[in-house]
């Protein structure tokens, strides 16, 4: 019997409070709407199976990635358990912990402007999730069941070229561990890296342009476990852009020159490789 472990990576790019939301950034109202729908989704996952497990990793641009919640380790949750208001206890605890932790994270030096101009830390969050999954698998000693882990990335921030190699490393580690990485792109903007991530790990890549429709997509496309997915007709294009980004200008390119020593990619011919320092002859 497989124990489903779902790691949700919430990649948010909040804009400063009381300012107009810039392109690709979220105002606090949108964050709240996303969070509400995410909580419903997490509760739905927990409701499917009594032994289902959820963890949430937040990747907030400029503030690093943090493990916010692990549904198997809620011992130090400071929730008023008696006053659940008719809600199922486990849902209540999970919701409260998540909201509380995320609130702390978002409120943390909300006023300092420079934090908002930093790049996303999605690669760090994916690495953290994979290390977490690895640890859960190692600690799982019951031979009768195995952990079936997958990652769902709710992503907003644009690709940052410096993350190309770390994200690729995550893809190979995920493939080796049989971890599926699903990607749900909010606000409908494209991401070359994440579409490659999803297609290479057998996950699905869905763009959601209207935030209010998020819950529909989450429940219909991302809730089914990988074993059931074969029988479903899920969205997600088969088209993936496999273009690489060159090391010199970080620009995507479809024809490039590759150093034969280290396989660094350059968009134009050059005499020496800037990564490994070898002097190269023209072929």
């Amino acid at each position: 019997m497989d124990i489903p472990l779902l790691v949700v990576v919430v990649d948010l790019f909040p804009s400063p409070a009381n300012s107009v939301a810039a392109k690709g950034k979220l105002d606090s109202g949108t964050v709240e709407r996303i969070l509400n729908q995410l909580l419903v989704f997490i509760n739905a996952h927990l409701a499917l199976r009594f032994d289902g497990r959820v963890a949430v990793v937040a990747a907030i641009a400029g503030r690093g990635s943090h493990l916010l919640l692990d549904s198997a380790d809620l011992s130090n949750a400071s929730t008023d358990i008696k006053n659940t208001g008719g809600m199922y206890k486990q849902f209540k605890v999970v919701d409260d912990v998540l909201v509380q932790k995320l609130q702390q994270l978002l409120d943390f030096d909300r006023d300092s402007e420079e934090n908002y101009n930093k790049q996303s830390c999605l690669a760090g969050a994916l690495s953290l999730s994979l290390s977490f999954i690895n640890r859960v698998k190692r600690q799982h000693t019951d031979p009768a069941s195995t952990i079936q882990a997958r990652i769902l990335t709710l992503s907003v921030s644009p690709d940052s070229p410096s993350e190309y190699i770390p994200i690729m490393n995550c893809i190979f580690a995920a493939k080796k561990d049989n971890v599926i990485i699903d990607v749900c792109r909010l606000l409908g903007n494209d991401s070359v890296f994440l579409s490659q991530t999803a297609s290479s790990t057998d996950g699905i890549f869905v763009k959601v342009s209207d935030v209010d429709n998020l819950i529909t997509v989450l429940l219909h496309s991302f809730l089914p476990e990988p074993s059931i997915r074969k029988t479903l007709c899920l969205p997600g294009g088969t088209l993936t852009n496999y273009s690489a980004s060159c090391f010199c200008h970080k620009q995507p390119c479809s024809i490039a020159y590759v150093c034969s020593v280290c396989l660094s990619i350059f968009c134009s011919r050059r005499d020496s490789c800037s990564t490994c320092g070898s002097s190269l002859t023209q072929q």
Partner: peptide, 8 residues
């Protein structure tokens, strides 16, 4: 060593 042209 050489620079190899490749297409993606």
């Amino acid at each position: 060593l050489a620079m190899i042209e490749m297409g993606f």
